[in-house]
Design a protein around this nucleic acid. Sequence first.
DNA 1: ATGGTCGGCCTCCGA
Length: 256
Amino acid sequence: MTLASWNVNSIKARLANVTAWIKSFKPDVLLLQELKCQEESFPVLEIRSLGYRHETVGQKSYNGVAVLSTEPIAVRERTLPGDETDSQARYLEVETHGLVAASIYLPNGNPVASGKFGYKLAWMGRLARHAEALLREERVLVLGGDYNVIPQAEDCYDPQAWQGDALFRPESRQAFRTLVNLGFTEAYRQIHPKMRDYTFWDYQGGAWQNDLGVRIDHLLLSPQAADRLADCGIDRRPRGADKASDHTPIWCRLDR
DNA sequence: ATGGTCGGCCTCCGA
C-alpha cells in the first residue's frame, strides 16, 4: 500500500491539482495539511467521487488537516494530546488500512523572536511525548506531514540563507532528532541516504525555477512500519503544475 | 520600463 502526505496550501484553491494527482498516483492513504477551510466547506463530493473516505479537522483561514483513504477511517485523535487550550487545527490521528496514521501540520515558528517559536518547540515536545505512547502500542504507525523542520544542512539549497530561520534553528532540529530517536525511521533518508531533494519551494524569487528548496515534509515510521518499508519518494510533478501549492507530495510504499 | 509570491480575507496576516 502507498501512503502520501501533501501540504496543499488551501484545499479549495488546490482542488483541481489535488484531484488530478490523486487520479494519477492513486495513494491508498493521503494525509493533507493547510486546508485553510472549515470542515463544512471541505469538498466532500469531489473527494468521494474519487473513491475516497475522508476525515478532516478544519479551521477558518489557517491550518487544517485531513486524512483520505480508500478504506474506512476510524478517528483516534482530533487534537494533539497534552494541551486542552490549543485550538489550532494541526493534528488528526486515525486508523485505516490496518495502520495508525497521523496528519501533522507542525507550527512554522517564525518569527523566532515572537511567541510563535516557543509554541513550535512546545508543540514538538507534546508530539514527542504522545509519540512515545504510540510507539508502546507496537503498531504499524506513520506520523506524516509538514514538520516545518529542515533536519540537516543537506536538506536545504543554502544553509546560510536559512540561518536563524525557525525551520533550521538548532532547537528545531534538535527537537526533531529527539522525536526520531524515540525509535522512528525517517522514510526518505532510509531509502535515499545521500540524495538531495526537496518538498517545498517558496513562491518568491523564482525558487522553484532555480530549485532553491528545502525538505520539510517527512514520514516517520514506527519500527513495525519500517519493517515493511519498500520505497519512498518525492513527486515533484505537482509543484510544476499551474496554480501549484508551494509544497509537493512525499510518499512511501509499505509491503505486505 | 515594468514587476515584484500566494491564499484567505474585517486591506493585512501567515507562510
